[in-house]
Simulated scan of single mutants.
Amino acid sequence: MTPAERVDEALRRCRRSALHLEMRDGYMLDDPDYHAWQAGHRLDPEDRSSWWRPWLQNIADVVARGVEVRRARIVSEPISNYIRYEYDITFPNLRAGEEVRWLPRRRASDLALPGNDFWLFDGEVLLINHFSGEGDWLDVEHVTDLEVIKFSAEAFEAVWRRAIPHDQYQPA
């Protein structure tokens, strides 16, 4: 099973909450969609069929079941070109029912944070994302250590409290 399939499966199984912490300034820089965006292509919010994909349907389905899906992004400012791309393409996540917040990295200096991005489902299933230095998604590690799960949950909530909701964040 690929890392993405493992996250999809955990999302489909969750019952209450799905928390995602992102802390990198670039991911999968060879992504064709990112290259198209760099060349000037922009998603048309009015043309849902052009940007709706299975991942978004998965989010919409779990949100419809009452699952709270929250994503927090810690970003350097001025933001990288990739983060500008992510900011620009976040509206589909919001329309699917995710809540998204942004935390400028300079406001996170006094927070205890894990070394890697992660997903935490129902406060019980922790999937840690491992990326290469270039931002390619290598693996998802399923962590069962209760102390690591607790630490990750607390880190996410600390970030969430400080982070700025997507509709209020103005990238620097």
Results as ranks from 00 to 15, higher is better:
3 P>R: 05
4 A>T: 03
4 A>R: 06
6 R>V: 07
7 V>W: 06
9 E>I: 06
10 A>H: 00
11 L>N: 12
11 L>Y: 08
12 R>M: 14
12 R>L: 15
15 R>W: 02
15 R>T: 05
16 R>D: 12
17 S>K: 07
18 A>W: 00
19 L>W: 14
20 H>I: 08
22 E>A: 02
27 Y>H: 07
29 L>D: 06
29 L>F: 07
30 D>Q: 13
31 D>G: 10
31 D>K: 09
32 P>M: 13
34 Y>K: 02
35 H>D: 12
36 A>I: 03
36 A>K: 11
37 W>R: 07
37 W>F: 13
38 Q>N: 13
39 A>F: 08
39 A>I: 07
39 A>N: 09
40 G>D: 00
40 G>F: 06
41 H>K: 12
41 H>I: 03
42 R>E: 05
43 L>W: 13
43 L>K: 08
45 P>R: 05
45 P>T: 02
45 P>A: 06
45 P>I: 00
46 E>T: 10
46 E>A: 15
47 D>M: 07
48 R>T: 15
49 S>K: 13
49 S>P: 00
50 S>K: 10
52 W>A: 07
52 W>Y: 09
53 R>E: 15
54 P>R: 04
54 P>W: 03
55 W>L: 05
59 I>L: 14
61 D>A: 14
62 V>R: 14
63 V>K: 05
65 R>T: 01
68 E>P: 04
68 E>D: 14
69 V>H: 07
69 V>D: 06
69 V>Q: 03
70 R>D: 04
72 A>Y: 08
72 A>M: 02
73 R>G: 02
75 V>Y: 03
78 P>Q: 10
78 P>S: 02
79 I>P: 01
80 S>M: 00
80 S>G: 01
81 N>K: 01
81 N>F: 00
82 Y>E: 07
82 Y>S: 09
83 I>Q: 04
83 I>F: 03
84 R>N: 11
86 E>Y: 00
86 E>I: 00
88 D>R: 03
89 I>N: 02
90 T>P: 09
90 T>I: 05
90 T>Y: 05
92 P>C: 01
92 P>K: 00
93 N>K: 04
94 L>M: 06
95 R>D: 14
96 A>M: 11
97 G>Y: 11
97 G>D: 06
100 V>L: 13
102 W>H: 05
103 L>Y: 11
105 R>H: 12
107 R>E: 15
107 R>T: 00
108 A>N: 06
109 S>Y: 11
109 S>P: 00
110 D>K: 04
110 D>I: 06
110 D>S: 10
112 A>V: 15
112 A>L: 15
112 A>W: 11
114 P>C: 08
114 P>L: 03
116 N>V: 02
116 N>Y: 08
116 N>Q: 14
117 D>R: 04
120 L>S: 05
124 E>N: 12
124 E>C: 12
125 V>S: 14
125 V>Q: 15
127 L>I: 08
